[in-house]
């Protein structure tokens, strides 16, 4: 803890280092926050899809296609978060 505090103090003194530290921290937050919503969304979506497949097995093919489409749209949000992570961390 002492070491981290010292690094932080030293880093805060240097504007470039301060930017890097802030970027790394906010990159982590960006990805973590971006993963919450889509995580809930995909869970809900797949759960409902499984439910409807169990209820109507003859419609399983159609449900599966639509489920993948929904997952693709939902997942895009998390992936944009991931790209923002890369941008913040490395750009």
């Amino acid at each position: 803890m002492e070491a981290i505090a010292r690094i932080a103090a030293a880093a805060a003194a240097d504007p470039a280092e301060a930017k890097n530290t802030a970027a790394a921290a906010s990159a982590g937050y960006a990805y973590g926050l971006a993963a919450i919503g889509p995580g809930i969304g995909i869970g809900y979506l797949v759960g409902k899809a499984v439910e409807s497949m169990a209820r109507q097995p003859e419609a399983a093919g159609m449900v599966r296609t639509t489920m993948f489409l929904g997952i693709a749209f939902t997942e895009a949000l998390a992936l944009i978060g991931f790209v923002v992570f890369i941008l913040l961390k490395f750009a």
Binding site: A3, R6, A10, D14
Partner: peptide
């Protein structure tokens, strides 16, 4: 301006080196 370079091992700080920023 000085920068701290900390070497850490197993939770213990084994060495702190100060280098100038330039």
């Amino acid at each position: 301006m000085l920068r701290a370079v900390v070497t850490q091992s197993g939770g213990h700080v084994t060495g702190v080196r100060l280098v100038s920023a330039d």
